[in-house]
Amino acid sequence: MASLADVFRVLARMREEGVVIDYAIGGATAVLFYAEPTRTYDVDVFALLPADESSSLAPLVPVYQWARAHGFTVDAGHILVHGVPVQVLPAYSALVVEAIQTARVHYYEDVSVRVVGPEHLAALALQAGGARRRERAWLLLQTARIDRDQLRALVRRHDIDVEIPDEA
C-alpha cells in the first residue's frame, strides 16, 4: 500500500519535470506540519505554472495531461495520486505567490516536500474567510509556533482586515 510519502514524491517529480515551476502544499494538509491535525479529504497544492500556461484559459490542462500520462486519474478537479485527491491550484493572488516562494522544505520520511509556512498559512486562511478557515487560522495561532509580528506585517501588506492578538 502506498504512503503519504509516495504522494509527496509525485509532487516533487512534477516540479523536477517542469510541469510546475514551483509548488507548496497549503490548506489542512499543511497545518499537519505545524499544528494539531484537522480533518481534510484532499491535499491542496498551490502552484506556479510555466508562463505559457498561467495566462491560458485552462491553465491546468498540461498538469492533468502529465498526471494521466503517469497513470493517475483526474476526477472532479482532483488528481488521484495513489488514491489521495490532490487539488492543484494555480497561484491566484500575490499572497499565494509569496506563500509558494517562501515555502519551507520539510522532510516526510526521506522525501522533501515544500509546505506553506505557518504565517502565510494563517494569512491565507484569514484572507479566504469563512468559518472553517477562520477556525484553521485560530488553531494555528493557538498551537503552532507563529511569528505574530511577521503575520501582522503580512496581513497589513495584503490588505487583510484582521487584528492579530498577542495571545490566542
Binding site: 503519504l4 499537519l32 506540519f33 505545524y34 499544528a35 494539531e36 491535525p37 484537522t38 480533518r39 481534510t40 479529504y41 520539510h106 516526510y108 520520511e109 493557538q142 498551537t143 503552532a144
Partner: peptide
C-alpha cells in the same frame, strides 16, 4: 492535550488524520 497533539511526530499526526477521516 491539544498541545501534545500539535507536537506529535508528523507520522503520528497523519495516522490521527486517517483515523479522523474513517470516523467522520
Amino acid at each position: 492535550w491539544h498541545r501534545r497533539r500539535a507536537e506529535a511526530p508528523l507520522v503520528e499526526k497523519v495516522r490521527i488524520l486517517l483515523d479522523l477521516q474513517r470516523q467522520e
